[in-house]
Amino acid sequence: MRIEEILQRIEKKNLKKIVQAISIPRHGCYNYESLSLVAKFIEEHFKEYGYFVDFNQFYYSGREYKNIVATLKGINSSKEWILIGAHYDSAMGSPGADDNASGIAVMLEVARIIREIPIAERIKFVAFTLEEPQAFDLKFIIRSSQFVKKFKKLGHRYKALILESVGYYSDVKGSQKLPAFTRGPDVGNFLGVVGNGKSNALLELFEKVKEYVPSINLITYKAPMNGWLALETRFSDHAPFWDAGFQAVMLTDTAMFRNPYYHTSQDTPDKLNFSFMEDVTKALLVAVLISPA
């Protein structure tokens, strides 16, 4: 099947439906029951699409949490993986439509479309939990850190593509801010792909994606010093993969640097641009389809 034919299978209505369904406060501490309902929603969608679902479970502050892992042939069917991940918890007091229902929606739509294509056997989809700062100790990126440590010890190797807030878009001049020590446009109409020095191959891969998805403004950025010079470039689930020596990139609308509703009660589905999310889905699909073996 040609890439163009595969991209035509994307349904924007699916992206919108998923975002609307899970845009409820789902903070790990304050909304534990809602977070569990969203986890079940994600699990059921993966199973509906024909995936085996495994749980990477752990306890935090006396409660059980789980990463949701979906593969076509089982979590241990390979040790060489393309990992597509997104976190499903939200910040305190926020329904988290952009952060990060948008990332979950794109991940699920990619899973639905790619399941019948041979490369899908190499993909591990992971919905991470407890990415957001937790109450009292303000720790964050908790579960992806433990996931990476566990599976690295088991000999698994990853090229990780992490979706982090991919639904907010603006054509207004001045709508885009930037972290310290970085340069870029001042209009928030692009998808950022953030990698580190070890992830050059993935950044180059997304440069090629532009040829297949001309409708998206895609900007790649290599974070110097593993992101420590601009700490905001480490604020998602790609950072543990960097620290473990794996190639990883974060796909993002840049979150707090663009979206004025970030981490507030106003981060709702009506603020998102679903045509932009459709293009993000296309870009991610193409990256996987043209990824070298």
Rank of each mutant, 00 (worst) to 15 (best):
F46K: 02
A97S: 15
A86K: 13
G174H: 07
Y158V: 01
R143W: 12
H238C: 00
P133L: 03
V53Y: 03
V38E: 05
A86V: 12
I22V: 12
F140K: 12
S275G: 06
D237W: 01
V209G: 13
P269E: 11
Y262D: 04
Y60H: 14
R143C: 13
F257M: 06
K17V: 02
G96N: 10
Y32L: 08
T233L: 15
L203C: 06
S77G: 08
F52K: 15
I219V: 14
T264N: 09
A248W: 04
H156N: 12
Y59Q: 13
L161S: 02
L15R: 09
F257C: 02
V148W: 11
L285S: 07
I22P: 06
K47Y: 02
T71G: 07
I84V: 15
F147A: 05
K222I: 03
F246E: 06
H156C: 07
R157C: 05
E80N: 15
V213N: 11
R157D: 06
F181V: 00
Y30L: 10
Q57E: 15
L161D: 03
L138S: 03
E121G: 07
L203Q: 08
Y51T: 08
P133D: 10
L7Q: 01
N273A: 04
A239K: 04
V194E: 11
G74H: 06
F46D: 01
V249K: 09
F274D: 07
S78D: 13
V280G: 11
V38P: 03
N56D: 15
A248M: 02
